[in-house]
């Protein structure tokens, strides 16, 4: 052992986490950094296998078995707290004098620097640990900056999408959003109703009281439609004074007729604006997904439109369901493009 004793200062410098073991497997000397991990009690004279639990290779219980694992990568763990994981390699000393085990932290270094208050001086000059810690921090800082940017971009994307689907004057969904929801309802094979609503006498408000009054009325109308429908329904402004409501999961004629009448009733209450009273009404037409074998968006829009025309012809301020009879009747009597109000109204702002 004398020869190895003379080597201790060399080992301490080159591998500050080494342990010298005698022939019985007891610690003769521990390198300064390893000793720093257990500052309260000297490691010397403790039995190596009582100090560490060997996790790989397993079932090593004696110095002989330990020596048999020489040159292999050892996975060990302190038996007492904190149970830091270590990696190591054991080599027998020349002349059967015992063995030297060199240890290092693997990835456990990230916890170990905190647990043991390690400093640069605790590592061999050639050890890359400090560089690794540097990289971990630098990468974390860079990732954090990237994460912040991603979060910001994500927020901007959501806001842009929101805007792209919103009618900015009324806050309702726009035509694009309505098409999107309609497509989804059809693809999901859900029962639904498509109600087309066209304001009556809106042009008169716009022409006599000005665009500000018109805008005010549209906002008021939007509010009523949202109030009279459920959160799951989609209310969209699809034209100047045209609206579409998609009723998700609802095809009951009685309920839909009541909703339409309630909306018309609310819209007919005069809307005060700037000391004036704006009077409008509305005509509604509804197509039900249950009336088709395979509902199609364009077809349903056209049919709801047809039902809306029928309401207009019946003297406005009423609600009509599309039906095959209605379609045949319309074929016979209705001249194309006979709409009264929709001509000179402002298009929806995107």
């Amino acid at each position: 052992m004398q020869q190895s004793a003379a080597m201790i200062p060399v080992f301490d410098q080159l591998c500050p986490m080494h342990v010298l073991l005698d022939t019985t497997g007891h610690v003769v000397h521990a390198g300064p950094t390893l000793q720093k991990l257990r500052p309260d009690a000297p490691l010397a004279s403790l039995r190596f296998l009582e100090l560490f639990e060997l996790q790989r290779p397993r079932a090593v219980r004696s110095m002989e078995e330990l020596l048999a694992s020489s040159g292999m990568k050892l996975h060990l763990r302190f038996r007492d707290a904190p149970p830091t994981d270590l990696k190591g390699v054991l080599m027998p000393l020349p002349g059967g004098e015992g063995a030297i085990v060199n240890l290092s932290f693997g990835i456990s270094i990230l916890d170990a620097v905190g647990d043991y208050k390690l400093t640069s001086a605790d590592f061999a000059a050639t050890d890359l640990t400090i560089e690794m810690l540097y990289l971990v921090e630098a990468k974390s800082a860079a990732m954090e900056a990237s994460r912040m940017l991603n979060q910001k971009l994500q927020g901007a994307k959501i806001a842009a999408e929101e805007q792209a689907y919103t009618d900015t004057l009324t806050g309702l969904k726009n035509r694009r959003a309505m098409d999107h929801v309609l497509g989804r309802l059809i693809a999901g094979e859900r029962p639904f109703a498509l109600m087309h609503i066209d304001l009556d006498f809106f042009k008169a408000v716009n022409d006599t009281l000005g665009h500000a009054a018109g805008d005010h009325v549209l906002q008021h109308v939007a509010r009523i439609m949202v109030e009279e429908t459920r959160a799951a329904d989609t209310v969209a402004r699809v034209g100047g004074d045209e609206f579409v409501i998609l009723f998700d999961g609802l095809t009951g004629r009685g309920v839909l007729d009541r909703v339409a009448r309630r909306i018309i009733g609310q819209l007919e209450k005069p809307i005060p604006f700037d000391g004036q009273r704006c009077k409008i009404s509305a005509s509604c037409g509804t197509a039900l997904s249950s009336d088709y074998d395979t509902p199609e968006a364009e077809r349903m829009m056209a049919d709801a439109d047809l039902a809306l025309y029928a309401s207009k012809r019946r003297g406005r301020a009423c609600h009509t369901f599309w039906s095959r009879d209605l379609a045949e009747e319309a074929q016979a009597t209705l001249p194309p493009a006979c709409r009264g109000d929709a001509a000179h109204v402002p298009p929806p702002r995107q």
Partner: peptide, 11 residues
Amino acid sequence: FAEGRHFDLAA
């Protein structure tokens, strides 16, 4: 010259 600021390896 002076004590300096402490530097802890643990982030």
